[in-house]
């Protein structure tokens, strides 16, 4: 995590809105969401299924169109209508690791093609030998053997397939990697391997991650800052330690209380909070976004803001 003040904003998400459908069937999946990701950090985005966390990731890599707001990458707008040159830059510099390695690899292609596919796009006239060399190196980087290049995805286990998914991202030499629940489809013993690999690659290749997850125990372990999203809105954002030490928003509290602990004593004493979104009194006094303490943002109305300030004292 870089020092404050010296930080460079790699990605700026400004008031984006994503809608699906139109007219009466319109559904707002992302509602006025803003956050920045600094170079070199691991930014966590947590929420339950359907909260829109994946949609945000997809909006950044331009799979889902945004209907409002803008997204800046290194200060340059990458949302809406952009030149094909900028588009190429986005493709090269922002890459995504998908959730389910069983579904995200082309079953009919060899590993060699899967990993190098992106290169055909950005450097179409590269020599075949060079491409093979890059693939071999990238397989080595993720802990696989270069000879795996001639095999098909079905010959690999879930953990190995996710490594192939990561190798495919790494050949592009991206600056920002969006990891969408990269380990939730994996076995517990394999999760640790893949998580360690991602942390090593972050250091050696100086990557920035947007880490999307619903499992808070992993988020606490790996991320520098965390944003909590509920029904398309970010309700709280802070440095990860701060968020876990002083959760303010009731939804964050509910999420934290539900983390399973591998400790029978703690579990027996545990109380799970259930978040009730109607508990807020937002009709008369709508919420806005406050920086309640340095680098700790929360969505609250004036009354709640006072309560939260009280809690932090």
């Amino acid at each position: 995590m870089p020092e404050m003040g010296k930080r460079e904003k790699l990605l700026e998400v400004r008031n984006i809105t994503v809608e699906f459908g139109s007219g009466k069937r319109k559904f707002t999946a992302i509602d006025d969401v803003s956050f920045d990701i600094y170079r070199g950090e691991i930014f966590g985005l947590v929420g339950e299924s359907g909260s829109g966390k994946t949609t945000i990731g997809r909006a950044i890599i331009r799979i889902n169109e945004i209907s409002g707001g803008e997204i800046l990458f290194k200060g340059e707008r990458v949302s809406g209508k952009i030149s094909s040159e900028t588009d190429k830059k986005v493709v090269k510099n922002i890459q995504m690791i998908f959730q389910d390695p069983m579904a995200s690899l082309n079953e009919r292609a060899k590993v060699d093609y899967i990993v190098s596919e992106g290169l055909y796009n950005i450097r179409p006239d590269e020599a075949k030998e060079d491409r093979r060399r890059i693939v071999a190196q990238s397989l080595l980087d993720v802990g696989l053997l270069p000879e795996f290049a001639d095999r098909f995805p079905h010959e690999f286990s879930g953990g190995q397939r996710q490594r192939i998914g990561i190798a495919r991202v790494m050949v592009m030499e991206p600056e920002l990697v969006i990891a969408d629940e990269p380990i939730s489809a994996l076995d517990v013993s394999i999760r640790a391997q893949v998580l360690n690999l991602m942390m090593t690659l972050q250091k050696t290749k100086s990557l920035t991650y947007l880490f999307i997850a619903h499992d808070l125990s992993i988020v606490r372990f790996i991320t520098d800052r965390t944003a909590v999203i509920y029904r398309g809105k970010i309700v709280e954002l802070a440095r990860t330690e701060k968020l876990f030490a002083n959760p303010l928003h009731p939804y964050t509290k509910a999420l934290l209380s539900a983390i399973p602990q591998p400790d029978p004593e703690v579990e027996r004493r545990k109380r799970v909070f259930v978040y009730d979104s109607t508990s807020h009194d937002y009709a008369a006094d709508p919420p806005s976004w406050f920086e309640i303490e340095p680098e700790h943002f929360v969505s609250a109305n004036t009354k709640e803001k006072k309560e939260y300030e009280e809690m932090l004292k």
Binding site: A192, Q193, N196, S217, I218, F221, I259, Q261, P262
Partner: peptide, 17 residues
């Protein structure tokens, strides 16, 4: 047990099998 992230130490690699 040791590969669970709940038991890991931040900044250190997680125990992996």
């Amino acid at each position: 047990l040791s590969s669970l992230p709940q038991l890991g130490v931040r900044g250190e690699p997680l125990f992996a099998i």
